[in-house]
């Protein structure tokens, strides 16, 4: 990811600016690539993915993500014939200008050695055409492994995969569509791609301090991934370390229910405000800027709550600018308004 940042900053990358960097999603057929994409970006629930057919060739989508980040997602069908094609005829077309490679390993795979060989070839091609790209490996379908063996199997696999990664330093995750682990992986991937993040984080911190919050989270509107977060010294003591992805998962699932209830599409904005006032903390989630929701966790207290909410509404404008459609200088993974079929 550092590489990516460098390339944005350096003038050498100027000519590339018009081309959106790709996010390649690869791995064996049936490993779960389209499933995770549908859950994160298209509001599927886990069980809906059983209906997905195998992806033919490459499924291109450009996912608008905050104002000036458009993900240029290549979901690459994993059947052998397609894979061979990517590595031969399509080699340059597929592997050039890649920002991120997400490689999915099916934990249930009967032939891990063969998966590794394929991975190796992909890494070689990537090294040839996009040597500065980041690599994430998702060891997927962890739910199928008996709990007490998960850690060992996961560690084994990761060690082997790492050893076959040439100069890349892949970042590994254990994932499953059946729990929040998927959100953890994708939030980190996205986190590395969002431009302006420093500024957003700075503003979030100022807001949090001002309203005496324990934690402030900024969610992307449709995926409900946490794109930015801030917490106070107290908030940092929260023992629940996987809370972001749990939170995403909770809200994402509830949106399914509200969509069924209201009859509005899942992609529609389902709720505008959620308030919770409990004896030991209060919390609200508000529709914030065009593409975000804001969640604020506070100590209990009616006055504190009301003034915090007020201040968040006031702070909106500052954030709305950051979430606005791309300014010319801003980005790398995206360009203004341009959409791709």
């Amino acid at each position: 990811m550092d590489n990516l940042n460098d390339s944005t900053a350096s003038p050498a990358s100027e000519p590339r600016k018009q081309k959106k960097k790709k996010v390649l999603l690869m791995g064996k057929s049936g490993s779960g690539k389209s499933s995770m994409r549908s859950i994160i970006f298209s509001n599927y629930v886990a069980k809906d993915t059983r209906r997905l057919g195998a992806t033919i060739d490459v499924d291109l989508s450009s996912v608008k993500f905050l104002g000036n980040l458009t993900l240029n997602l290549w979901d690459c069908g994993g059947q052998d014939a397609f894979m061979e094609n990517y590595l031969s005829q399509q080699r340059q077309h597929v592997f050039s200008n890649v920002g991120v490679l997400i490689y999915v390993f099916d934990i249930e795979s009967r032939d891990f050695d063969r998966d590794l060989l394929t991975y190796r070839s992909i890494i070689a091609a990537l090294g040839q055409f996009s040597p500065t790209s980041s690599v994430y490996i998702l060891v997927h379908k962890m739910d199928l492994v008996v709990p007490n063996q998960r850690e060992d199997i996961y560690n084994d696999r990761v060690a082997l995969i790492r050893s076959k990664s040439d100069a890349f330093a892949p970042i590994p995750f254990a994932t499953s569509i059946w729990d929040q682990s998927l959100y953890k992986a994708w939030a980190e991937i996205i986190h590395d791609l969002v431009p302006n993040l420093d500024q957003i984080e700075k503003h979030l911190g100022e807001l949090g301090e001002m309203i005496e919050a324990e934690e402030v989270l900024l969610f992307e509107r449709s995926s409900f991934l946490v794109v930015s977060s801030w917490c106070s010294a107290i908030g940092a003591m929260n023992p629940t370390s996987d809370r972001f992805e749990r939170f995403s998962n909770i809200i994402k699932n509830f949106k399914q229910t509200t969509s069924r209830y209201t009859g509005t599409p899942k992609s529609a904005e389902q709720f505008s405000l959620l308030e919770m006032k409990l004896p030991n903390f209060s919390l609200f989630i508000v529709k914030f800027t065009t593409n975000t929701y804001l969640s604020v966790c506070l100590p209990p207290g009616e006055e504190r709550f009301n003034s915090a909410m007020e201040n968040c509404y006031i702070a909106r404008n500052k954030f709305e600018d950051l979430d606005a459609p791309a300014k010319k200088s801003a980005d790398r993974g995206a360009t203004s308004g341009a959409t791709e079929a």
């Binding site: 505008s272 405000l273 308030e275």
Partner: peptide
């Protein structure tokens, strides 16, 4: 504990 959610619809 009290809570309230406002559906957009």
């Amino acid at each position: 504990a009290e809570s309230c959610i406002v559906l957009t619809d």
